[in-house]
């Protein structure tokens, strides 16, 4: 038995937690990457804003796109929807209203994480504090995920949580691929060793580097990287994996046939995309299509399982 309202809040709680974790990983890997760039070639920090689609919002409240401002915006900003701090707060609010279906210890972990972010985020913008802070965010999130994975009954609560997590992750992976590819191509002026480093940063930001090296080998090749993050269905952050796992979860939830059909169509498009021979424009179009598919899917999930909006 699961209330529609509870299903909706679990879904969003998982989305926000995943968003916080992914943002932490993105900021962390990019910050590390910048350290390795030779003097004179330092890239801007704008790319992070582009990735989370936050350029406009940023410009409304900050004057200059400095490293400090951008990190503050992504990590410690209380107002902005995509900041880690906001995401954790939103996750906790959703948790607070669904506490009765989740283990009590998970609620305590959620509070620890929330307290940690409230107390530390403002002071963790400087590089010397940033890495530890972000590492901790990721670790706390994984602790919560681990607890949920090992103590929550295999039923709807878990399926809605996983659904939210996978939707958010698929969205984030596709954004990172989209923006990073465009950025890398715009930087042909970098000295030669710079280019593979950019691609390996993309893998880092998805925690995919070790998995890639085991599967493909030590050489970081652009086409192989795209192939890996799009199609490697055994890697849990690839688009292919997320799509299949979403299909499994909504299958458990007895989704209507139409929803399953449109998911299979998304899977087919991933399979058909030619990673060895593509233009930037083609990749961008493919990602756009993928994201539109996710948005439709979200609307479908909402209409099928969540609380109808109150009559007006």
């Amino acid at each position: 038995m699961m209330l529609s309202r509870v299903a909706e809040r679990l879904y969003w709680m998982a989305r926000y937690l995943e968003r916080a974790e992914d943002t932490a990983r993105l900021v962390n890997s990019y910050s590390q990457f910048v350290l390795d760039i030779p003097k004179g070639y330092e890239p801007g920090w704008n790319v992070l804003l582009k990735t989370i689609d936050g350029v406009e919002t940023f410009e409304q409240s900050y004057r200059r796109p400095t490293e400090r401002n951008i990190i503050k915006f992504l990590v410690a900003d209380e107002q902005h929807l995509n900041s880690i701090r906001y995401s954790i707060k939103a996750a906790r609010e959703n948790f607070r209203t669904t506490r009765d279906v989740l283990p009590k210890t998970a609620w305590e972990l959620m509070n620890e994480l929330h307290l940690f972010v409230e107390q530390q985020s403002e002071s963790s913008i400087a590089r010397n504090k940033r890495f530890d802070f972000l590492k901790n965010i990721i670790a706390c999130n994984q602790q919560i995920n681990g607890l949920i994975a090992t103590t929550v009954t295999r039923n709807r609560a878990l399926w809605f949580l996983q659904l939210g997590q996978l939707m958010e992750r698929a969205d984030m992976t596709s954004r990172i691929v989209d923006v990073a590819t465009a950025e890398i191509n715009a930087r042909t002026t970098l000295p030669v060793p710079g280019i593979p480093m950019l691609w390996s940063n993309l893998l880092h930001s998805l925690s995919a580097i070790s998995a890639y090296q085991r599967k493909v080998g030590p050489i970081i090749d652009a086409n192989e990287v795209i192939e890996f993050v799009l199609k490697m269905s055994q890697f849990p952050r690839s688009l292919a994996y997320c799509t299949i796992a979403i299909e499994e979860n909504i299958g458990q939830l007895k989704a209507p046939n139409g929803m399953l059909r449109s998911l299979r169509s998304i899977s087919r498009k991933i399979a058909r995309f030619d990673t060895q021979e593509f233009t930037l424009d083609e990749l961008h179009k493919f990602i756009d299509g993928f994201q539109a598919g996710l948005a439709d899917l979200h609307d479908g999930i909402s209409a099928t399982w969540f609380l109808p909006p109150p009559p007006t």
Binding site: M1, M2, L3, S4, R5, D100, L253, L307, P310
Partner: peptide
């Protein structure tokens, strides 16, 4: 609610049907 394994509901989760019984809106 957690301690009893009961559902924690808000007004919008409940409705009274034609049979005069009270129902929760659930995913099923």
């Amino acid at each position: 609610a957690q301690g009893m394994g009961a559902e924690l509901v808000e007004g919008g989760d409940l409705f009274v049907d034609d049979d005069e019984c009270v129902y929760m809106r659930t995913v099923d």
